[in-house]
Nucleic acid binder design. Structure first.
Length: 788
DNA sequence: CACGCTCTGCCTGCG
DNA sequence: GCAGAGCGTG
């Protein structure tokens, strides 16, 4: 009887979740204990995550439980057996009585990496379980940690109302420390130093520990010194950097038993998405938070770990079941996204990596088109080829522009693409580049607001005291800084009472004027709404006036500043009690307003990194060349090369139907022409799934892929740059711009007349009508045209 | 103190 | 090829 009961109950639950495959369902019903879900690309991991949480909230452990009700009767079983025939929706309600320990939404935590992912997660949860989903602690690591830190700032070693320093602020702080220590900022490049400090923090290393571990070499000793001072100054400014947000939370939970106990008991279930991207600090946080119930679920794909350079330790996912020795591991290997050709291409490539979990992604879909690998002469031709191909696809197959994505290794590649696309009339959108809150004008206004929020904020004060120009120079700022240090007060205090200090002399008046601006704004902050404050900040600071005076040149910046006001209005609408502090926190932590408008019908261009998690019918991968992809920095380093390969794997698996990789013979990099070999990754693709289109006659060998070795052996491995003259002789014409109507001579095509000239990022595209060869389009650099 | 010129260095990037 | 930093001059 017991067995029949369990069977009937399981059957009902199975039916509710019949839209999942067996593996997905297994992951969903494994509710208790540590669980690792290895989710291959396109295997429906978000669906599993969302429905698993819904299952926990609705039915608790009911699905997997083998408990038998003490009053079990034949009648119960018969009813259950009947219930399995109910339509899904009714069955869902009916099964509520078989819930065991259903979990309130507020006891579930779900951590993601990006705000975008967090929002998507929340939206989908609301759809599945309704408004209750709002109670779930779903957010990014930083968002969750901030919630904890804001509740216990003092216990975490901070003061109430602490501020967040972003990368820019960090850099300023480190630069000033390097200067104060009289260190050479070439040898101690701020960026590199910040990286070192960040790495240390990510692996939970204190300045003291860092010092102990690295004290042999002078260089490292100095880094340790900077790290120590940096921490000191952050603390003095009552500020945290991004890493601190997590590190301080970990420390807080480690040392404060009461607080730890509270959160451990509060959160019965902890889920972490994109686990392959976590670092040690984030791992510790997860361990601490889930320490009581041990119901920790992590989802990730080691093959898609592409942020090692940012401190992620792939070991977290590789070793999860060693750290939690009772962990269940479920692999999701069925891909619902791509054709078989694409999946097999991806599989074949990634198999070249060593450090990975064995996994075989498969699909029930048909083979589809072969993966096209196309060689072109240069980047302009590459861009034109892609543009033509997209045009062809939209015209012939009636696809939308937005079904096409171009994914590249580095942002700089967008230039040549943009040049061609802008002229082709194909609508396109470039994602990435500077984000909204990182734009100078926005950071400036935000700095004003920071100062309004807290006059202690010396760093932000320094940023804007002379922006717009108020004739307050470096010398004055330094004097103020020294005075503030001597008296142990903030720079703003000094400025407010500037006339008292003879050292400040004649500039005192200007300083007072600046203090007046801030004080006026502080008054406004108390009486008026947030958006009004933002608006008046822009006016009273003189910032708007400055931009208006700059006219056309500052048009974009003016627009951005206006947009900030809109953001403030939107913030007010979504937050009942919109405070300045909250708004500033959001500005610091919420990366971008809106990544991209998916409804706009435009070709999307972005780096592969930012394409993670997205998918498109047609994907183009330009620049598959040694030195570019894999990048020359990674060549020779096994671990880094494997990361590049994973990156390529991510790129391939973005495509649903068509995939096209291109590489060129010569590419303009850093203003010089480079001749790179085709990427080694191309040689790692399965021949039978790909179609190779090389240029010209091929000196091909039977093996299928072979490349023009003689020419490309030059630069790829040595980063040696061949002088353009020797390989691609620049004709005199390339230095002298030709105009329409000019008569020219070409080395091969003979006499002709220029029909049109198109400016293309530093080069010119000539349309030439030749007497004997018809009309040709030629790039100035390569055309070998001579004016007659 | 502000502006303009020269020099340098260059990947990917969430919060 | 371009942007940001640093330096020199008005």
């Amino acid at each position: 009887m017991e067995r029949r009961y369990i069977e009937a109950k399981t059957k009902c639950f199975d039916k509710i979740y019949s839209f999942l495959n067996d593996r997905q369902r297994e992951a969903l019903k494994t509710v208790r204990g540590p669980l690792l879900v290895v989710a291959g690309a396109g295997s429906g991991k978000t669906t599993v995550l969302v429905n698993r949480i819904a299952n926990i909230i609705r039915y608790g452990t009911g699905y997997e439980s083998k408990n038998i009700p003490f009053d079990l009767s034949e009648g119960n079983i018969a009813e259950l057996e009947m219930a399995s025939r109910l339509p899904s929706e009714q069955l869902e309600k009916y099964m509520a009585k078989y819930a065991e320990n259903p979990c309130p939404a507020w006891a579930v935590m779900c951590i993601t990496f990006t705000n975008k992912a967090a929002n998507e997660m929340k939206e989908r949860l609301v759809k599945v379980i309704g408004e209750e989903a709002e109670e779930i602690w779903a957010g990014t690591f930083h968002n969750i940690c901030m919630r904890i830190l804001r509740r216990h700032p003092v216990e975490a070693g901070l003061e109430n109302g602490f501020t967040i320093y972003d990368t820019d602020d960090q850099k300023k702080l480190v630069t000033s420390i390097i200067r104060d220590f009289n260190l050479d900022d070439k040898r101690y490049a701020p960026k590199a130093v910040i990286n070192k400090i960040s790495k240390a923090k990510e692996s939970l290393m204190t300045p003291e520990e860092f010092e102990k571990e690295f004290s042999k070499e002078l260089y490292e000793k100095n880094i340790a010194k900077i790290y120590k001072e940096y921490s000191k100054r952050l603390e003095a400014a009552n500020a945290v950097d991004f890493d601190d947000i997590i590190v301080r939370t970990v420390r807080l939970l480690e040392k404060d038993e009461e607080i730890r106990g509270y959160y451990q008991r509060r959160f019965k279930y902890v889920c972490i998405d994109e686990y392959q991207d976590t670092n040690k600090a984030q791992f510790m946080l997860a361990v601490l938070l889930s320490g009581h119930y041990r119901n920790i679920m992590v989802v990730g794909d080691d093959d898609q770990s592409i942020y090692r350079f940012r401190g992620a330790t792939i070991e977290n996912i590789l070793n999860f079941d060693k750290v939690f020795d009772d962990a269940r591991v479920v692999k999701l290997e069925q891909n619902y996204r791509s054709t078989a050709n694409i999946i097999e291409t991806a599989n074949h490539l990634i198999a070249h990596n060593r450090g990975r979990r064995e996994k075989n992604l498969w699909t029930a879909k048909e083979d589809g088109d072969k993966v096209l690998v196309k060689q072109l002469n240069d980047q302009a031709e590459e861009a034109r080829f892609i543009a033509d191909s997209i045009l062809d696809s939209t015209v012939k197959n009636g696809t939308k522009f937005s079904d096409h994505a171009i994914l590249y290794r580095v942002n700089a590649q967008s230039n040549s693409l943009e040049g061609v696309f802008a002229k082709s009339g194909i609508p396109y959108r470039i994602l990435g580049g500077t984000r909204f809150y990182e734009r100078k004008e926005i950071k400036d206004i935000v700095a004003y607001l920071c100062l309004v929020s807290s006059t202690q904020d010396n760093l932000r004060l320094k940023r804007i005291i002379n922006e717009p120009k108020r004739k307050i120079g470096d010398a004055t700022v330094e004097a103020v800084e020294r005075l503030a240090e001597m008296e142990g007060v903030s720079m703003f205090d000094i400025i407010q009472n500037a006339d008292r200090y003879t050292a400040l002399g004649r500039v005192a008046e200007k300083l007072r004027a600046f203090a007046d601006i801030i004080n006026t704004l502080r008054g406004i902050a108390e009486t008026e709404t947030l958006s009004e404050l933002v608006e008046k900040t822009i006016d009273i600071s003189g910032y708007r006036n400055m931009l208006v005076l700059q006219g056309e040149a500052a048009e974009d910046r003016l627009q951005n500043v206006e947009e900030l006001i809109s953001n403030a209005v939107a913030f007010e609408e979504s937050h009942e009690e919109a405070t300045l502090a909250q708004f500033l926190e959001e500005a610091a932590l919420v990366a971008d307003i809106d990544n991209y408008d998916e409804t706009a019908d435009a070709v999307v261009m972005m780096t592969i990194h930012s394409a993670k998690g997205l998918e498109f019918d047609n994907v183009y991968l330009p620049g598959l060349e040694e030195g570019l992809f894999p990048s020359f920095q990674s060549i020779g380093e096994q671990a880094e090369l494997e990361e590049e390969r994973r990156l390529c794997y991510v790129a391939i698996t973005r495509a649903r139907k068509k995939l096209c990789a291109t590489y060129v013979k010569s590419r303009l990099m850093y203003g010089q022409t480079q001749y790179n070999q085709p990427s080694r990754f191309l040689k790692e693709l399965p021949e039978d799934r790909c179609a190779l289109e090389e240029l010209q006659r091929r000196e091909s060998v039977a093996s299928g892929y072979s490349y023009n070795q003689k020419r490309s052996a030059v630069s790829a491995f040595t980063r040696e740059v061949k002088r353009p003259v020797s390989a691609a002789p620049k004709s005199p014409a390339s230095t002298e711009k030709l105009s329409v109507g000019d008569e020219v001579k070409h080395i091969k095509f003979g006499h002709g007349i220029i029909l049109s000239v198109t400016d293309m990022s530093g080069d010119y595209l000539y349309e030439v009508m030749f007497d004997n060869f018809g009309t040709k389009k030629l790039m100035a650099t390569f055309a070998k045209l001579t004016k007659i």
